[in-house]
């Protein structure tokens, strides 16, 4: 039993320490993720380390994942920082703040070309958040920042 607890502890440890890595992704990979048919609700936040309102609302996304950990909910962060800033800005930022979420960096030189593909209503202003549940055909993009209450409302309205 103790050994089992230890094993679980180790798994958690591995998951947590891995979670701090920032994975560069091409749009294609993100597209597969966004369009995967699953009953998991994805809350995907587009942000950047230099974007003050983005940084301010990040704890709300961490909190959402924490509060609804029993739900089929996955909160992802997608950094729109330049690829050249991955090691110098984004990874140190994520590490320093101990962000327990999966963090990606959109590795596209021409970021503008993928904005419409992520959501046509998005002008490209940061921050932006996409909430999707493909099993429920639910998809909503928010070009705005959130307080925790507002984010919670946005998430809960995807479940109605």
């Amino acid at each position: 039993m103790k050994r089992g607890a230890l094993a679980i502890g180790l798994i958690f440890y591995t998951v947590l320490s891995h979670a701090q890595q920032v994975k560069p992704v091409k749009y294609e990979k993100l597209h597969q993720l966004i369009n995967a048919i699953t009953d998991t609700t994805y809350v995907i936040n587009f942000w950047a380390t230099w974007c003050a309102p983005c940084v301010k609302e990040l704890p709300n996304f961490i909190e959402l994942q924490k509060q609804y950990k029993a739900d089929k909910l996955k909160v992802l962060l997608v950094s729109m920082d330049f690829r050249s800033k991955l090691e110098t800005s984004v990874e140190p930022f994520v590490e320093k703040r101990n962000i327990p979420l999966e963090v990606y960096l959109l590795d596209e030189k021409d970021q503008g070309s993928v904005i419409d593909k992520i959501d046509e209503s998005w002008s490209g202003a940061l921050p932006g958040t996409l909430i999707i549940n493909n099993n429920q055909s639910y998809r909503k993009f928010y070009e705005r920042d959130f307080t925790y209450d507002e984010l919670q409302q946005a998430y809960l309205s995807s479940k109605k």
């Binding site: 974007c51 503008g112 904005i115 419409d116 998005w122 202003a125 940061l126 921050p127 705005r144 920042d145």
Partner: peptide, 10 residues
């Protein structure tokens, strides 16, 4: 018409 990532207007 094109789009680019930018800072949201405050």
């Amino acid at each position: 018409m094109t789009k680019a990532v930018g800072c949201g207007i405050k």
